[in-house]
Structure formats: structure tokens, C-alpha cells
């Protein structure tokens, strides 16, 4: 049984349809990455999956008792709101101090419990968000461009943290990302969106699909070039592709 399954999902705001006919599912322990250009419906899909956006048509089915750990795209905390990391992790439900310590350690920031949220660096902030997502003992982590605003080493190290968490806890991961080269390599499956699902499959299949290349170019972009470079070295390129 899949953790989350969508069928013929159609999403929109008012009269604008941003995403149509999305059917996909994610299983226990899987890493699925969603890529696509700006405005392609990536974030909308995640919002529908967590229940924050009602579908225009189609359905989202979540497994019974599914626990979701959500890491939002950006979380702006107003400077007028005093909030320590510990207090933040106690929202909306109070947590045991020992659980908080474990979650912060897993997220790689064990020393930050008493820091003010407003004073964290970008990387620290995302790790605290990750810790908060882990506190609910999630079956699935859902990350919406969680490394936006981090530099390349910063986001690479964040994704290593995610992979480590997955190895330790066996959670599934569903994420939206722009860091194609980092993310795609770590994924079991990639979903390429542009108003609908253009193509999907293993990272290798998607990176070679013409629909994907039409969206992201064929190596002129730095990030993609880097990815394909690694990829070309790892695989014999003349076999096994279904286009």
C-alpha cells in the first residue's frame, strides 16, 4: 500500500489551473524528487498532498494514520516574534525535552535548542525545520525547495543529512528541488512537472528524456552539466534507455 496516492489530480487557484491530471504514488522508504520550471505546479502539488490545497478534481489518498513531516519552502518569522528553537519545536504540540534533543541531533544541530530563531543562519534554520519535521515521527518527509537560499556546499550538506535520516529511520522523502544535480542522484524516482507530468522515472531516464531536455536544456546550464558529467562517467551511455 502506498503512503500517498493521487489520481487524476487537478489543481488551481480561482479560474487558473496550474496542474492537471497528476497520478502518482510514493511508497514507504522511497525518495521521490519533483523538478520543473517556476510556476510548473510543484509547490501546489505538495500543498495538495499535505491537505493545504483542495483539488479542483481528482483525489489525494493518504494512508490511514499517515504522519507527515513537512519542511516548508520558506518560513519567515517576523523579527517582532521572540522565539527560541526549543519553543518553536514545541509547536503545536508540547514535546519531551529528550525527544527534542534527539531530533536536533539527528538534524545535525544539537547545540541550538536555546538560540533565538531570528538569529539562525540559513543552513541552521533549515536543519531546525528538519528537526521539527522529525519530532512527529513521520512516515514521510515532505520538503518544498528546502535548500532555497543556501549556497551549494550548504545544500549538498543538507541533502546528505536527509539521506542519513532516511537510512536511519527508513522514512520516505518527497521533495521539490531546483538543485537538480544533487537531488536527482539521490532519488529513486524523479517526477518532472510542467503543468502536468512531462516525464517520470529513474534519474537516468528522466535526465535523458526529450521532455526534460526541452525544459532544462542539454548541458548548457551549469548545474545540469555537472550532473550529466557525473552521470556520463558512471554509465555506459549506449544502452538500456527507453525514450
Amino acid at each position: 500500500m502506498s503512503l500517498i496516492e493521487t489520481r487524476g489530480l487537478c489543481l488551481g487557484y480561482g479560474n487558473d489551473v496550474v496542474l492537471r491530471d497528476v497520478t502518482f504514488s510514493i511508497d514507504r522508504g522511497e525518495i521521490v524528487t519533483i523538478v520543473g520550471p517556476n510556476g510548473s505546479g510543484k509547490s501546489s502539488l505538495l500543498r495538495a498532498v499535505i491537505g493545504a490545497l483542495q483539488p479542483v478534481s481528482g483525489s489525494v489518498t493518504r494512508a490511514k494514520g499517515l504522519r507527515i513531516g513537512y519542511v516548508p519552502q520558506q518560513l519567515h518569522i517576523d523579527a517582532t516574534l521572540p522565539l527560541t528553537v526549543r519553543r518553536f519545536l514545541n509547536l503545536p504540540h508540547r514535546q519531551k525535552a529528550s525527544d527534542i534533543a534527539v531530533a536536533l541531533t539527528r538534524a545535525g544541530v544539537p547545540e541550538l535548542a536555546d538560540a533565538q530563531m531570528a538569529q539562525l543562519s540559513g543552513g541552521q534554520f533549515q536543519r531546525v525545520l528538519l528537526a521539527r519535521a522529525l519530532l512527529g515521527r513521520p512516515d514521510i518527509l515532505i520538503l518544498d525547495e528546502a535548500t532555497q537560499g543556501l549556497d551549494q556546499p550548504g545544500s549538498a550538506s543538507f541533502y546528505r543529512q536527509i539521506e542519513e535520516v532516511r537510512r536511519e529511520l527508513g522514512v520516505a522523502v518527497l521533495m521539490v528541488s531546483h538543485d537538480l544535480h544533487v537531488v536527482m542522484a539521490a532519488s529513486d524516482r524523479v517526477l518532472c512537472l510542467n503543468g502536468h507530468i512531462c516525464c517520470e522515472g529513474s534519474p537516468e531516464v528522466v535526465a535523458d528524456a526529450p521532455e526534460y531536455r526541452a525544459l532544462f536544456g542539454t548541458g548548457t546550464q551549469g548545474t545540469l552539466a555537472l550532473y550529466r558529467h557525473d552521470h556520463d562517467h558512471a554509465h555506459d551511455h549506449d544502452h538500456g534507455h527507453t525514450h
Binding site: 493545504a52 507527515i68 516548508p72 518560513l75 504540540h93
Partner: peptide
């Protein structure tokens, strides 16, 4: 107040 989607997800 922090984030509506975060609240929905929890």
C-alpha cells in the same frame, strides 16, 4: 502565525 501550511501539515 509562523506558517499556515506548516500548521495544516501538523
Amino acid at each position: 502565525t509562523l506558517n499556515p501550511d506548516l500548521a495544516t501539515a501538523s
